[in-house]
Amino acid sequence: MTKRPHLFARFDAFRHAVDIASQLEEFAAGEYVSHEDTYASIQRLFEGSQNPADSESPLNGQIGDELGAIAKECGLARLVRGENLNPYFDVAHVLRDALRSAGNVAVVTGSDARWLSAIRVALAYVSRRDPQRSAMQQIAPRDVTFAHAVNFFTSKGIDLSLVGDEVSIPSSDEWERLANTAWYPLRSLGDTQAMVLLDEILCDDTTRLSDECACIRLQI
């Protein structure tokens, strides 16, 4: 059976724009070392540019939410599709933090000069900032667990794919297979034991897992 691909439209469009911006001329040494200068420069690019056409409107009408969704897709694409995480993940977070209060700004595209300029500034900052003074962003633990679950179920032959951060399953039969795969080894456990076992399953701790499953079968 051919596996359906995981689809991350926001990430793919963003990656395209970042790849274009990364080919542009670099800024002079010493520029965009501080987040204050970086954020202010990015914010100026979008002054007075609110209320785009509906087709270009960001998630929830907020560009901060849109960029947060892009960053989330960056992490998921890394975990389930093996994509390069950076510079895309870091750039998305810099843009989100800079434009958190910018409101209804058109989504990122590689054909929008404002976005190419903003990404160029963010790229400079990411490569020049002092790591001792800047907190490095990490993929959220809940997204890591979610991606591990997706990888686990697909490894069991269940026909599911991610579309953004939503699971797509084509039929009720596949839903039943997924439910049975998750439910059978957990049904005789309490909440705490179930969570411990689930963590082991997702981390592929096969030796300890097989012992636990043997014990579960004896209890049933």
Score class of each variant (00 low, 15 high):
Gln62Thr: 02
Ile63Gly: 03
Ile63Arg: 00
Ile63Glu: 02
Leu67Gly: 01
Leu67Arg: 07
Gly68Arg: 00
Cys74Ser: 08
Gly75Ala: 13
Ala77Cys: 07
Arg78Glu: 12
Leu79Ile: 06
Leu79Gly: 04
Val80Trp: 03
Arg81Gln: 02
Gly82Ser: 05
Gly82Leu: 06
Gly82Tyr: 03
Glu83Gln: 06
Asn84Val: 08
Asn86Thr: 10
Pro87Thr: 07
Pro87Asn: 14
Tyr88Trp: 10
Phe89Gly: 06
Asp90Val: 10
Val91Cys: 03
Val91Ala: 09
Val91Arg: 07
Ala92Glu: 04
Ala92His: 07
Val94Gln: 11
Val94Thr: 11
Leu95Phe: 04
Leu95Met: 08
Arg96Asn: 07
Asp97Cys: 10
Leu99Val: 05
Val105Trp: 02
Val105Asp: 03
Val107Ile: 06
Val108Asn: 03
Val108Trp: 00
Gly110Asn: 05
Ser111Ile: 05
Ser111Glu: 08
Ser111Phe: 03
Asp112Cys: 01
Arg114Trp: 04
Leu116Asp: 00
Ala118Glu: 12
Ala118Gly: 13
Ile119Ser: 08
Val121Arg: 15
Ala122Gln: 12
Leu123Arg: 09
Ala124Asn: 08
Tyr125Met: 13
Tyr125Asn: 10
Val126Leu: 13
Ser127Phe: 13
Arg128Ser: 01
Arg129Pro: 01
Asp130Met: 11
Asp130Tyr: 09
Pro131Trp: 11
Arg133Val: 00
Arg133Asn: 13
Ser134Thr: 15
Gln138Lys: 10
Gln138Asn: 15
Ala140Val: 11
Ala140Thr: 04
Pro141Gln: 05
Arg142Asn: 14
Asp143Ile: 03
Asp143Gly: 13
Thr145Met: 13
Phe146Ala: 05
Phe146Trp: 02
Ala147Ile: 15
Ala147Lys: 13
His148Trp: 00
Val150Glu: 08
Val150Thr: 01
Val150Asn: 02
Val150Trp: 09
Asn151Gly: 12
Phe152Met: 15
Thr154Met: 09
Thr154Cys: 11
Ser155Cys: 09
Gly157Ser: 01
Ile158Glu: 11
Ile158Gly: 10
Asp159Tyr: 08
Leu160Ser: 09
Leu162Ile: 13
Val163Cys: 11
Gly164Gln: 07
Gly164Ser: 07
Asp165Trp: 05
Val167Phe: 06
Ser168Val: 14
Ser168Trp: 13
Ile169Gln: 00
Pro170Asp: 00
Ser171Ala: 07
Ser171Leu: 12
Ser171Pro: 13
Asp173Pro: 04
Glu176Phe: 10
Ala179Arg: 14
Ala179Ser: 15
Thr181Ala: 15
